[in-house]
Design a protein around this nucleic acid. Structure first.
Lengths: 327, 327
DNA sequence: CTGAAAGCGCTTACAG
DNA sequence: CTGAAAGCGCTTACAG
């Protein structure tokens, strides 16, 4: 209603959308801006969306915000979206406390596209049916349903970690694995197995599956450490499991790292909150969200988006050391 | 365009919004539903919003999702919103990595109301100017700008914690305080001071301020533990600070809790991820989000919402014990 | 350079 | 019980 600036609706629209150059006189443009400022005028986004047929809204699907990793990834995606005038609706997928099973019903907005983490796969059924552009994060490369995939170099990360541990002299290795059936964890298991197999006298003595919680890691590590042959190192799929593994070691009277080494994955804040601090693999959570949103924006522009693999880095800290000399 | 069911737009609308009882024959209603199902028809929310003048969208403002507390609070709010067919847009306020400084520009949607955490206060300027219904969480009661306030009983929590520590026999107490100027932390400081003052020979020997990170807590605790008189207990404003305080103690060669006790606030996952586990005050994060959203929905219905104070509970764990006997 | 008009897809009185 | 019509607030050809 800023026609109280004495101009037509059309002129207001042109000026406010910065499409006035050469179509509206600079003087009028300024008048419109002044009036808008004065009235605190904000265009009705619903009307704009209806007219344009696009909502400039993307859905971001992550398994659980309470995981720092996903929260940071989300923040990266939201920042890039905001920089491009795109709104973000968050869908915490229903593993655990998430709300409605239908992201569309949940979102309360018509969506242009979806950026989804692989761990949220179950929630994606209705999305793919929606026929929306979809960019996947940390997921099977060349997923046919996805327009693009943005991954950390998980394989390389586990390779670096395995070599670190083998290089310290460990030969009896246990894998504390996330009991989540997704690409990222299958990749970790595969690469760990492969690297251990390359060292003649080394072996993966045990794999224990655990829910992705400290308690889960604790229980799984306790099983691994009380079975024979006892592993000298626990390679964990996630920092949270590693924190649990450290607790298990302590309860069993084993010192970390002198009697048993523990390694995590992720390099979340938790890795440096515990003592000793965790040797882990740093995953670029923010960069994943950013790159993922960039890819989605590219797809929404109608251009093809390339798949991206982001580098990761081993971060050696106090939770790993050489194995104790054999009795 | 489900008029391919052979009925008018109006009929479709009535049926799909469950407003057909007594206005559309049951047979037709069923026809419409079948057609909608078959075509995968979803009403255009932008059009609906434009027509109704309400968007059924709420903005939730929290300081940072990477804090588990706020993530859980958000999840509670989102769940309640979803149950009531209201969408949620998340605004991670710009302390740290947050995106745009203007929640409205950021949201990409016109909003019906706002649910905001007090720690996000700086981001609320433009909100209050927007004249939107606002419900505050963990914030100054009777804030004139807010339609309602939902708080945990912070004062009672700190009271319980202080009495626990005093009851164990501690007399030289240090406060590791969050260097955030907000109601919730002022309340903690005030109540701790008051409770300590009630015990004749006890005193608050030191207050050290820290940014809300493990590193911040570590540095502040180091300062507190190296000054004289040395405190026998560190009461921390947050679990994250307490985790840092435990690290500081260990670096100084002090055992927790035998040589120095440490207490946190929040009872986040971190509290049980570290060793020893933290004595802390459990804050009902999910309930706060839920109650806050309920209050906002009430306000949006045009009814007055009462202020709410939620109970909290002391959770004694291994990080606190009696002070060491004096040398 | 400027404005009048159409139309995006809904919902809701209003007529029948 | 059912449908035709108006109108929500924008944006975009189209005339002038």
């Amino acid at each position: 209603m800023a026609e109280r600036a004495g101009v037509s609706q059309a002129t207001v629209s042109l000026v406010l959308r910065e499409r006035w150059q050469g179509r509206v006189s600079p003087a009028r443009a300024e008048t419109v801006r002044a009036a808008a400022r004065e009235l605190g005028y904000r265009p009705n986004l619903a009307a704009r969306s209806l007219r344009l047929g696009r909502t400039r809204t993307a859905l971001v699907v992550v398994p659980a915000l309470s995981s720092e990793f996903f929260a940071v990834m989300y923040a990266g995606a939201a920042r890039v979206a905001a920089d491009h005038g795109v709104g973000v609706v968050l869908y915490p997928s229903p593993e655990g406390i998430g709300p409605a099973p239908d992201p569309f019903a949940h979102s309360g907005a018509t969506l242009d596209g979806v950026l989804a983490s692989s761990m949220a796969a179950p929630a994606l059924r209705s999305l793919s049916e929606g026929g929306l552009p979809l960019v996947m994060l940390d997921s099977e490369p060349r997923d046919p349903g996805a327009a693009a995939t943005v991954n950390p170099d998980i394989g390389d990360g586990m390779r670096q970690l395995a070599r670190h541990v083998l290089g310290l002299g460990h030969r009896r290795i246990a894998h504390i694995a996330a009991e989540v059936d997704s690409w990222t964890f299958r990749e970790r298991a595969r690469e760990l197995t492969r690297e251990v197999a390359r060292v003649p006298d080394a072996s993966l003595v045990r794999t224990e599956r655990a829910p992705l919680t400290v308690r889960g890691g604790l229980a799984a590590a306790e099983r691994a450490l009380t079975a024979l042959p006892r592993p000298t190192v626990l390679v964990c799929d996630d920092d949270v499991l590693a924190a649990g593994a450290c607790k298990a070691a302590r309860r069993l009277g084993l010192r970390v790292p002198t009697e048993v080494s523990v390694a995590g994955f992720g390099d979340t804040d938790l890795a440096t909150a515990v003592e000793p601090e965790l040797t882990t693999v740093r995953l670029p959570a923010a960069a994943m969200g950013e790159e993922g949103m960039h890819a989605l924006l590219t797809v929404l522009r109608g251009e093809p988006a390339p798949g991206t693999v982001l580098p990761v880095a081993l971060v050696p800290r106090g939770s790993t050391g050489p194995p104790a000399a054999e009795g």
